[in-house]
Design a protein around this nucleic acid. Sequence first.
RNA 1: GGCGCCAUCGUCUAGAGGCCCAGGACGCCGCCCUUUCAAGGCGGAGAUCGCGGGUUCGAAUCCCGCUGGCGCUACCA
Length: 428
Amino acid sequence: MRWLGLDYDEGPDIGGPYGPYVQSERIEYYRAAAEQMLAQGDAYECWCSSERMDAVRAEQTRLKQPPKYDGRCREVQAQAEARREAEADGRSCVVRFKTPLAGSVTLHDAIYGESTFDLATIDDFVMLKSDGFPTYHLAYIVDDEMMKITHVLRGNEWISSAPRHLLIYKALGFEPPVLAHLPLVLGADGAKLAKRHGATSVFEYRDAGYLPEAMFNFLGLLGWSLDDKTEIISREQFIEHFTLDRIVKNPAVFNVEKLTWMNGMYIREMPLDSLVDVFTQALERDLPASVARPIDRALVGRIAPLIRERIKLLTEVVEYCDFFFADELHYVREDLLGKAFKDRADDAKSALARVGTVADGVSVWSHDALEAALRALADELAVKAGDLFSLVRVAVTGRRVTPPLFESMEILGKDRCLARLRAAADSL
RNA sequence: GGCGCCAUCGUCUAGAGGCCCAGGACGCCGCCCUUUCAAGGCGGAGAUCGCGGGUUCGAAUCCCGCUGGCGCUACCA
């Protein structure tokens, strides 16, 4: 959440007026709520063993009946018996909600509208576990009430549990908050992106070179839209325009391709200064250990404008500019010769030598002076400019795909360029 | 199996009875620009609005049924 820039006003790490914020320190509140429902007859202790529960469920499944607690401990008699067995085994009990056998509850959802659930389909669910900890159902309700929460926005997978929650609110005498269930985000396979996996995968996206701003923008537009055309929208605009009524009801498939495009947009639009920070970090991480640290931020500042529109992911930075930081290049003969000089190594070699002298003679070491000089040379050599440039490109950078050649040479500096031109020629 | 939710281009979406023989974006294809790669510009293919019935002068938009997808069905959240 922090990486995405999603901040919160209260929490275990920052405190707040309604603490404590750690569940284990709030046990007494959950206990008290359970006691209250026990006293009111809205809940009861269940002493059934997990073995019995498994057996009951197995039987129900076999009979193709919906698996649910059979309510044995609802009966005082049976409960007492179960209790004796449990105590003999040294087991403790759970507290279950005593769901009315008939009737219905109606959920008023801010997004999905009204839906009515038949209580007969809801079993006596556990609120307090045998270790004394509450289940989510009880915990969030007690916490939200005490913390004065007005809106609960959560994934759609909770909609089935909502009637239970309504039951608890009522039993405890709480006014339910606004409940809004959000459509799920599905993976490319169409299945729910599990929360447990999601937590790790946010960092996987970070490590894969995505910017938190792009991720935020992309995620914000899954299931919600500002209008019929806005794709790039800032955090501030989201805050200003976000409304529940523009949330769609259907699940969205997480489309990485679009995220990647969006990331490229953010890289291109980002203020240069921040971009340099981000690029520098990426290089600190991705450049080989042989490159001395810290990375020269000023140098990155000169390179950044050249590569910002060429990459979509931060992980691509290194492959576009490692040659600025490397001492020695390793040439792949095939790359160096390219199509134009294939089988003409001698010509390439002499061309490279000529490029060296011409470059050496350039009055100012600037990209346009270099370009003018090398274009003239290409004419003189009766070689296509593009072909000559490709040769020089690989000689100077070691790569076939690079930022603009002459700008790169300008940044690299005369000495290193001339040295590389020689090294390339020698390698042939 | 039970209960529930949902249903517009491959994907994200606009659309709340006539403006829609459906608009935008990603991706894809082509052209232009060009020293590579991108970016950018222009253009194109791509949805009988899941299917079938209604209601209406008129339906992607309202109603019903079907089908499909997904979710829940734990002493997990």
